[in-house]
Write a protein that binds this DNA or RNA. Structure first.
Lengths: 344, 344
DNA sequence: GGGGTTGATGAAAGCGTTTTCATCCGTTAG
DNA sequence: CTAACGGATGAAAACGCTTTCATCAACCCC
């Protein structure tokens, strides 16, 4: 079918060993020989069979990308970033989605993975630190994104500070009844972002002398629908909020729509701040916490490839990076309806 | 390091051939033997090395997913669909993004691909039918998505009919000056969707006795920004439209924002219909043409796996499926500002 | 009972690379 | 002039599977 290394060797009148060396740019090949081999290879349109070479070299030249799902804005952006830098280096990327709760176990049981990938970017780490530790112990190069674990480099956000910033913006505008739309109620993963964001929310309230009202903290599932349902619940409360901090822009968008359908003006009657800076947020004028998701994906890939590089694995200390976030004030936040009423 | 097939063979006191057969569920293995092998394998936590097995079996057990990019809503959804069904069958999916114009050539030159994947889902086919034909000729199982090519099964939309439907909705409401926000001006790919949608647009106008005004057809690049810029241009025209058909929801969203910023009410002063039914569209009340992108991805994967299945490759006639679309009337379309004026 | 089946098994030949190790030869140092 | 050296090369042994082919026993039907 297609040319093998032997065909090239024959065409260039050298041994397969020399072809292998010449083609991979290894030293100790005479320049004239290398040229001859290169010519023969391109003449025959030879490309090394990846499986054969990976078997022989005992490296898969593949990095796995494990994430809870793909198809959401956040994960797609992340994927995009990772893929871009990984592909540029000749590695393959093997996506692995662990949808649902069983997915995580599947992931761990799928030890084929261990033989398939040289390294792994684990996103939103729906894994126990122990489990991650086991992976590291098993010799898989690992970078985590969204959760910090001591054994491996990570990229995270200062979620608490970011949330504090968002909510302070709200208190600064005079809001006293501020709701938070957060993660999933019965967290099947111990995903820390929603927890940390909730802490930042509490921080900011406390700083403004406000006691958090449990009725104002509702789960939103990080989805449009979840945000909408959450808002529904908030509006049904006896004393509805004048402002909402949604832990993702998608939830914010869903929530805003419900609010507007209920006749509330945003920001006139209700202020809304989101988290992410989703592509559409700029067009909706959503005030939000901006983060560069694609950039984080790229960075994670770079870290991983660094680990994989012949030189990198050794002495380097595992680095924990905190990606920057900032508050983007647009047009969905403003003073509460009757600010003075709240202060008497 | 980790157990090999020989270890299992030894542990079960059989030959490696028998282990291979037993583990893969091949016939002609005594039940008792199979049980013994299974036990030994699970005891040793044995998993076949994928590279070795792929090399020996001469199948990569991988399907490639070639798309112009990842990170947009549309492509992420597609990916999600493909990945879900492919992963369920034990195949790997290898994403290949051909960003930019050079990407396509890279894709074609990357014949490693041919040795790496058993089949390919090509999305939005930024390839010449000739090039696709060559791929098919080279023995790669192929399914195209978004463009139809005779040599391979495909999943497409009836873009023309869908656009006709969208624009008819507008003419039906009484609009006469209807703009279209379409694809990229100097189409580096000969991507047919925008072209067909434009045809449908013209169809609908003609049916209503309207002569298309070239000034009302502007490119939008299928992005939020592009949609915004397009709207900018439309508003600057001497005789602005009262309705806009955007070839994607993202463009519609960008355009709507610009329109609203310019003081226009939607749908009071301007009607807007999009295409896709993006996740957020429901929450924005955007009237649009709905398509099930994830479903199309799933279907494409099924077709491809069917081709790959031992039985499937042979006699089956290549099928061209047309995924359904329908008009979803929400709240961004209404009669033109002064309908009667238009009919004098 | 004997020849033909049939099913279970193992030996061994690939699959297409990489990599080790030995060889060969032209240089350089002594 | 010889010995040691180092760079270029090839032979061959992995790498860890799959698959063909041969073997062997048990079985079946006149």
């Amino acid at each position: 079918m297609s040319a093998s290394i032997e065909d090239v060797a024959r065409a260039a009148s050298v041994s397969v060993a020399t072809v292998s060396r010449a083609l991979r740019g290894l030293p100790n090949v005479a320049p004239s020989t290398r040229a001859r081999v290169l010519a023969a290879a391109s003449e025959l349109r030879y490309v090394a069979d990846p499986h054969a070479s990976r078997l022989a070299a005992r490296r898969s030249l593949t990095v796995g990308l494990a994430l809870p799902m793909i198809g959401t804005w956040y994960h797609a952006k992340l994927f995009s970033g990772v893929e871009a830098v990984v592909a540029a280096t000749g590695y393959d990327v093997l996506p692995f989605t662990m949808t649902g709760t069983g997915g995580v176990d599947r992931f761990l049981e799928d030890l084929p993975f261990r033989k398939r990938v040289d390294g792994l970017v684990v996103v939103d780490a729906p894994l126990h630190p122990d489990q991650l530790g086991r992976l590291v112990g098993a010799g898989v190069a690992l970078v985590t994104l969204g959760l910090r674990c001591e054994q491996a480099p990570s990229i995270t956000l200062d979620n608490r500070a970011a949330a504090r910033l968002a909510v302070s913006h709200l208190t600064g505008l005079g809001h006293r009844r501020i709701a938070i739309i957060g993660g999933v109620p019965d967290d099947p993963f111990r995903f820390s972002a929603p927890v940390d964001r909730h802490r930042g929310y509490v921080d900011a309230l406390s700083a403004a002398g406000i006691t958090p009202d449990p009725a104002l903290a509702v789960p939103g599932n990080f989805s449009l629908e979840g945000g909408a349902e959450a808002m529904q619940r908030l509006l049904g409360a006896s004393d509805p909020p004048t402002a909402v901090f949604a832990c993702s822009d998608e939830m914010a968008i869903g929530a805003m729509q419900v609010a507007r359908d209920a006749g509330l003006r945003v920001p006139g009657d209700l202020s809304m701040v989101g988290f992410d800076d989703h592509d559409v947020s700029a067009y909706l004028g959503l005030t939000t916490i901006r983060q560069d998701v694609t950039g984080q994906g790229e960075r994670a890939a770079q870290l991983l490839l660094g680990l994989l590089a012949p030189t990198g694995g050794g002495g380097a200390v595992t680095v924990h990076e905190v990606a920057p976030t900032r508050l983007l004030v647009r047009h969905t936040t403003g003073p509460p309806p009757h600010p003075t009423d709240q202060f008497d």
